[in-house]
Amino acid sequence: MFADFLRRLTTPDPAPLDRADARLALTALLVRVARSDGSYDAEEKDKIDRIIAARYDLSPFETADLRTRSESLEAEAPDTVRFTRAIKDAVPYDERIAVIEALWQVVLADGHREAEEDALLRLVSNLLGIPDLDSALARQRVEKR
């Protein structure tokens, strides 16, 4: 289903993603982090829905559709390293910082941090070209909300 999209995303020199594809890839990354602890529950899905609805100004139907498509993409996407590096090459830095904040929102959605989630978020931040300090500051901003 997403073979062409993934092929374009993981080419050695990917073109910048258009807005719709960037939404899909970044939402798939949210799903991947939410699934990283082996539990992908209603709280995490609700948090992802709220994040993408606000971030992209989507209706409830559009939100559900984007999350559903992103769940499918995440399941088909290559390993986290290649997938995240591909996003880094195709998405501007300022959008990647906002994604780190959104990822922290998902990690903290259930009220506690799991070691697997922390490890994956640290890896993802690094692969997205976000320094540890900026990721920590993003986490602190999320925790203050």
Score class of each variant (00 low, 15 high):
M1V: 14
F2L: 10
F2N: 15
D4H: 12
L6K: 06
L6V: 12
L9V: 13
T10V: 06
P12Y: 10
A15T: 10
P16V: 12
A20E: 12
A20H: 07
D21M: 06
L24S: 04
L26V: 04
T27K: 02
V31H: 01
R32T: 14
V33M: 07
A34P: 00
S36R: 13
G38Y: 05
A42H: 09
E44H: 05
K45I: 14
D46P: 03
I51M: 11
I51P: 07
A54S: 11
Y56S: 12
L58P: 12
S59Q: 03
S59E: 02
P60S: 09
P60D: 05
P60N: 10
F61P: 00
F61K: 11
A64H: 07
D65A: 11
L66R: 05
R67L: 14
T68Y: 01
R69I: 04
S72L: 06
L73V: 06
L73D: 02
E76C: 10
E76H: 10
A77G: 03
P78C: 12
P78F: 12
P78Q: 11
D79E: 13
T80V: 14
R82H: 13
F83L: 12
A86E: 07
D89N: 15
D94L: 13
I97K: 13
I100V: 15
E101P: 04
A102G: 13
L103N: 02
V107A: 14
L108G: 04
A109Q: 04
D110G: 02
H112A: 11
E114I: 00
A119N: 12
L120G: 04
L121Y: 00
L121R: 09
V124Q: 01
S125Q: 02
S125M: 01
N126M: 08
L128S: 02
L128V: 09
G129V: 07
G129C: 08
L133C: 03
S135N: 07
S135R: 08
A136L: 13
L137Q: 10
R145E: 12
